[in-house]
Write a protein that binds this DNA or RNA. Structure first.
Lengths: 123, 123
DNA sequence: CAGTATCCAACAGGATACTG
DNA sequence: CAGTATCCTGTTGGATACTG
């Protein structure tokens, strides 16, 4: 059974369990920065190689792509798979947790579209 | 009628409408930084005054609180209400859009708790 | 009470060149 | 192909003091 936790179940941020604050920050941390969203977005549609990601994400440098992939791997969003070919073949794939981020992205998308409609009258 | 948009309805990030990417970034922008989440979290539980927020959010300086509140106001998350008393009385309240962010926070919370359970075996 | 002003450190990220 | 290395700039945020 999965219990859905809601912020508004509490009376104040102070009465909100500490691990809730940590969980919220975890989520924010895997999304923030200039490149994580594009990378995750790209990987949501399937396994990709390093150079493929670089082509997929306009303007990203190998330095930043490498750095962000390492961080995402460390945080359990991405699996890095190395195949012993010549030249070496490396593939990146989302983990189960990584794939489930699409739920968060969907709610962010929903909110963002609504907010644009509300504040800018865009339909 | 509200149509729910989903990232996974597309075949690739490139085929994802441009305004979807913008909406996603809008949402990320109102959440990122060290202080926006604590501020929004605090205001979710009701109208607050400047000094009240400062007491509610450990370690925030007036400089940062002022700066972040201005940004949140500019982005339509927060209403600033000035009452002509002596000394002047200022109250901060979430807008409708600001309140609706709780849906996003809930999905972030849900994902974060699941991810912690999955990667660290915390129940 | 509700902020500003000034100065400073740390870090994110870009440019460019190079490597096994 | 899949990255590293080096150098450099701009932004974020902290410390501290001050104001109507």
């Amino acid at each position: 059974m999965t219990v859905t936790k809601k912020i508004t179940d509490f009376a104040a941020i102070k009465s909100c369990p500490e691990q809730f604050v940590l969980a919220l920050n975890d989520t924010l941390n895997v999304l923030t920065g200039k490149w994580k969203l594009p990378i995750l977005g790209s990987l949501l549609f399937g396994i990709k190689r390093f150079t493929e990601l670089q082509r997929n994400i306009p303007k990203i440098t190998p330095r930043m792509l490498s750095k962000e992939l390492k961080e995402l791997e460390l945080n359990g969003m991405v699996k890095r798979m190395v195949y012993d070919a010549t030249p070496v073949l490396v593939e990146y794939e989302l983990t189960e947790s990584g794939k489930k981020l699409s739920d968060v992205l969907d709610s962010m998308l929903q909110w963002g579209l609504n907010h644009r409609k509300a504040t800018m009258g865009v339909q």
